[in-house]
């Protein structure tokens, strides 16, 4: 083989390799992304039915219930606006506590419960997962807005009764 042909073969091989790998990567990335969706969005039906996704928020106080089989746990994740009931089979991470932030990954069942495959643990008791923090914050902002709108509406009402 001439050196020019060798070079062409090398370059061609490299391009083919990169192409295959890029296809592989994009395909894998596409099918393995878990979108994060807040409890309120889930309650409004914005969650995908068949795909894995993540929810985050606070574990509602007093909501952790152990089912009769001993290893299925049901709890509620809330962003203070909407509650989502979550089922998880297995042993929860140590830092999973009522009133603390948590992130769960799984699927939505037709009855509206969230079947978690994975519940994320944290290393630090004071740490709040960013997703959970965002859900709470968004819900809070909406709450404030609603309140402001209600007040504005009230103020706009004619004071006929007086």
């Amino acid at each position: 083989m001439k050196s020019r042909h060798k070079k062409l073969a090398l370059i061609g091989g490299a391009i083919a390799l990169v192409g295959i790998i890029a296809a592989l990567v994009l395909n894998a990335l596409n099918s393995n992304i878990a979108l994060y969706i807040s409890p309120t969005d889930v309650a409004q039906g914005k969650a995908p039915q068949e795909k894995l996704f993540r929810i985050g928020g606070l574990v509602k106080e007093g909501s952790i219930q152990r089912q009769a089989d001993g290893v299925t746990i049901r709890f509620i994740i809330t962003d203070s606006e909407s509650d989502i009931s979550v089922d998880y089979v297995g042993i929860l991470p140590d830092l999973f506590l009522e009133g603390k932030g948590a992130v769960a990954q799984g699927r939505l069942l037709p009855d509206g419960t969230f079947k978690a495959q994975e519940v994320l643990a944290k290393h630090d008791e004071n740490y709040m997962p960013p997703e959970a923090a965002k859900a709470l914050n968004d819900a809070h902002v909406r709450g404030v807005q609603r309140q402001a709108e209600e007040e504005a509406a009230k103020a706009a009402q004619p004071k006929a009764s007086y």
Binding site: L24, N27, A28, L29, S31, N32, I33, A34, L35, Y36, L52, R54, Q105, P130, E131, K134
Partner: peptide
Amino acid sequence: KISVGPPYFDA
């Protein structure tokens, strides 16, 4: 916000 799971990396 999204997360990329272990299956991606394995794949």
